[in-house]
Design a protein around this nucleic acid. Structure first.
Length: 424
RNA sequence: GGAGAGAUGGCCGAGAGGCUGAAGGCACCGGUUUGCUAAACCGGCAUACGUGGAAACGCGUAUCGAGGGUUCGAAUCCCUCUCUCUCCGCCA
């Protein structure tokens, strides 16, 4: 969420931000409405506070007179009249505040200056690593995974539905190995604190990281209890310090968590649905950082390199793509996607999305820190990135390391975790 | 699920209708003193919104878990909810 000052003092900046996302036409009416409601709201606040000030001084006068034994005359009834006016005005104010809040929650973050304007077609490849295998004669992971008994799509569909995966035998061991490998890397080499968090969260947490109110349809909900299954560990981990004031020495703070992630993928049916590419429940190790506003842009580079390290150690060729403004997520100010090449299916697969959210999430979740020099608390900047998502990495491993005889070599770095050097 | 107790500033903790934005302590910041570290002493130290100001800062309003109510006036009384603790029941 933006600072209200953005609406009052920098509305051109806000409009330009929406234009760069290609969303100005859709959002201009909302911005204008927010501006109008805000100014109406401020008038009301003044009217209410004047009356409250008058009422407070009357109450004090009552107290004073009672102490000295004087008559309080008409003061109580005057005060009661004021109270009634205040109630009416406050009801009006509540309506306005709700409308303003609704509007503000619908305005996406402004991207950083170095993010290219335009839509998906303006995404820019920043760098790449490794050499993709020649795709000729290679099989897709859904064939290899089934024939080696690593993945059981049919039974996943039977017990839960399409898009729910059962891993078996060495396939299951591979999932567990990836989890341990990634957590070990990020804690031992990259300095992250390992956290284990609930995968069911409340509405406040979902709103804090911006999944709500816009994307409620994309989530699995437990309606009886108003709880939601997380679409990413970003939600519980970023919200860990919601409502708190950290000290400057707490920053930067880096946390990593393994969780399953749940996505309804409503409306995505039929696209990329083959195999492990788009599923309803998947596993992921997530990286979350809190940074100061001064360092957050640099920390995005650091975070991205840490996610890349996973792919390098796994020996999987990948490319880093800077998303254009129109393709950048709602709350994000800048995002790099990491895409690995799956030579069997012949596609690049997004396995990580690394973003800096500036103070957009922190303002919603109210995560602040007190600067070292003292002074007022400031919102932290939040960042996160997958480090990395499992199913697509499994797809890439199986396809990249496949042998002519149908077996798959295990990447060196995973061998200690799997206790084998070959999937067969 | 049943019964009881509780929730006060960054932290601990007083307060039990008006003089309380809130005693006292700790932490933190500035200063004095001091071979160094420490201690002692003095002073400062909440947040948000509105408003005035170039700013320093001033004024107003709100905030004692959240929301409602009683009252001229609520941290304090009443109701609902959330969370924590104790006991009982159930349970991986």
């Amino acid at each position: 969420m933006h600072d209200l000052r953005m609406i009052r003092e920098h509305i051109e900046l806000l409009r330009d931000g929406m234009r760069r996302r290609g969303k100005l036409d859709a959002l201009a009416p909302i911005i204008d409405r927010a501006q109008a409601v805000d100014s109406e709201r401020r008038g009301l606040i003044q009217a209410i506070e004047e009356r409250k000030a008058a009422r407070n001084s009357m109450s004090q006068e009552v107290a004073r007179r009672k102490r000295s034994g004087e008559s309080v005359d008409e003061l109580p009834s005057q005060s009661r009249t004021l109270g009634e006016e205040i109630s009416h005005l406050e009801a009006e104010l509540a309506t306005l505040e709700a409308e303003l809040q609704r509007a503000m929650l619908e305005i996406p973050n402004i991207t950083l200056p170095d993010v290219p304007e335009g839509g998906e077609e303006c995404n820019r490849q920043i760098r790449s690593w490794g050499t993709p295998r020649d795709t000729a004669g290679l099989k897709p992971h859904w064939d290899i995974g089934v024939s080696l008994g690593l993945i059981d799509f049919e039974r996943g569909a039977k017990i839960s539905g399409s898009g729910f995966i059962v891993f078996r035998g060495k396939g299951a061991r591979l999932v567990r190995g990836l989890m341990n490998f990634m957590l070990d890397l990020h804690t031992a080499e990259h300095g992250y604190e390992e956290v284990w968090v609930p995968v069911v969260v409340n509405r406040a947490s979902m709103t804090g990281t911006s999944q709500l109110p816009k994307f409620e349809d994309d989530m699995y909900a437990i309606r009886d209890d108003d709880l939601f299954l997380i679409p990413t560990a970003e939600v519980p981990v970023t919200n860990l310090f919601a409502g708190e004031i950290l000290s400057a020495s707490d920053l930067p703070r880096a946390m990593t968590a393994y969780t399953p992630c749940f996505r309804r993928e409503a409306g995505a049916h039929g696209k990329d649905t083959r195999g492990l590419i788009r599923v309803h429940e998947f596993d992921k190790v997530e990286l979350v950082r809190y940074a100061t506003p001064e360092s957050s842009a640099d920390e995005l580079e650091l975070l991205t390199l840490q996610a890349e390290k996973v792919l390098q150690l796994l020996g999987l060729p990948y490319r880093v793509v800077l998303l254009a403004a129109g393709d950048t997520g709602f709350a994000s100010a800048k995002t790099y996607d990491l895409e690995v090449f799956a030579p069997g299916a012949g596609v690049w697969l997004e396995v990580s999305s690394c973003s800096v959210f500036t103070d957009f999430q922190a303002r919603r979740a109210n995560i602040r820190y007190r600067p070292a020099e003292g002074g007022k608390p400031r919102f932290v900047h939040t960042l996160n990135g997958s480090g990395v998502a499992f199913p697509r990495v499994i797809a890439a491993i199986v396809e990249h390391y496949q042998n002519a005889d149908g077996t798959v070599d295990v990447p060196d770095v995973l061998r200690p975790y799997l206790g084998t050097d070959r999937l067969d």
